[in-house]
Amino acid sequence: MSSRDSKRSADLLGRLLGPAEPEVSCDECFEQLDRYVEIERDGRDAEAAIPGMRAHLEGCPACHEDHDSLVALLASDAASPES
């Protein structure tokens, strides 16, 4: 079995089974997203501050994309603060 096949199977099982840890809901994720991302940007332990958020971001791709976009937008702001 090639490493590519192995990764595809792991990805498939991951999508089917989701995270093993307790996770927040989509609504709680949206509620806390801004705070979570700022804690991450400050280099502090975001998972300790908001338990279950990281597991949800692993299990829910839509919320994961919202998270990544907010991180990217804030990084863009920081790179060109006058815009």
Binding site: L13, R15, P61
Partner: peptide, 29 residues
Amino acid sequence: TLHDARRKLRARLAEEGLEPGRATAGGTR
């Protein structure tokens, strides 16, 4: 609904003595 389904699947695997590894942690697209 998805979360509840995943919990049922994990519970059934545990009953069969199967333990998905950390490598399977992930989500839908």
